[in-house]
């Protein structure tokens, strides 16, 4: 469902992502690990078509993101890192707007909004202005917009960031459940999330993949600890992306 081949991104002389290749199949949740500035968000922005690639190819459900971005984008639900929202809208209004932008209308839009509000536990704040929401609710509102059109592919950039422990648990459960029917690529630097929600994980450092495998395989590579592997294969100081 997600096929990334030789993906490279340069910002001037700086190489943010260097010849990265990986794939995520249906029913797979791929954890994207790495220290800050490793190139995780840049990779995700290229996979979702927000950033143009310097070199390489991204295909989503066999549609090229480079040759046919509009069609490829229809297949993706995306939660950006900072969970950006329009503060002047209500949660429901924002979700209705996003659903319309995804081509939904009438009953289909109403049902999609209601379902994503329910899935992300937003019932209590549905009519509240986004500007007044706490960080956890803001994050869940942005997560809700990524689920509206029931996409085949989900790209989630740090989906549990800013959530309290209970909410983190719920979101991990949600990702795991959604992963049965979809291909999910999600980035995190919380290593517990890999064993809790992922079927496979890659560790990225300075724009390249330095480890790849199932959580158990990765733990075995680290001598029984994912932390040890992470320390071993990643650098302490990475330049900002």
């Amino acid at each position: 469902m997600i096929e990334v081949t030789g993906l490279t991104k340069r910002f001037g002389p700086k190489v943010a992502v260097d010849d990265l290749s990986f794939s995520v199949k249906k029913g797979e949740v791929l954890g994207f690990l790495g220290p800050n500035g490793a190139g995780k968000s840049t990779t995700m922005r290229m996979v979702t078509g927000f950033l143009p690639v310097t070199a390489g190819e991204v295909t989503i459900c066999d549609i090229s993101m480079i040759a046919n971005p509009q069609e490829a984008k229809r297949k993706i639900g995306y939660l950006p890192e900072s969970a950006p929202l329009y503060n002047d809208m209500t949660v429901q209004g924002f979700l209705k707007f996003c659903a319309s932008m995804r081509g939904l209308s009438g009953t289909a839009r109403r049902e999609a909004v209601a379902k994503s509000i329910e899935t992300c536990f937003l019932e209590n704040v549905a009519r509240q202005s986004i500007g007044t929401l706490s960080k956890g609710y803001r994050h869940r509102t942005c997560l809700a917009q990524s689920l509206l059109h029931d996409p085949e592919v989900l790209v989630l950039d740090e989906p549990t960031d800013g959530l309290d422990p209970n909410q983190k648990l719920e979101v991990r459960k949600l990702i795991k459940n959604l992963g049965k029917e979809k291909a999910i690529l999600f980035s995190t630097h919380i290593l517990e999330e890999v064993t809790a929600a992922c079927t496979r994980a890659v560790i990225v450092d300075q724009g390249t993949i330095v480890a790849d495998g199932t959580p158990k395989e990765l733990e075995a590579q680290g001598g029984g600890s994912l932390y040890d592997l992470f320390h071993k294969v990643t650098s302490f100081e990475t330049p900002a992306a």
């Binding site: 927000f50 984008k73 993706i76 950006p80 900072s82």
Partner: peptide
């Protein structure tokens, strides 16, 4: 606000 990232990833 970063909402350009949402607009840029809508079809």
């Amino acid at each position: 606000t970063g909402t350009i990232e949402l607009l840029g990833t809508f079809p």
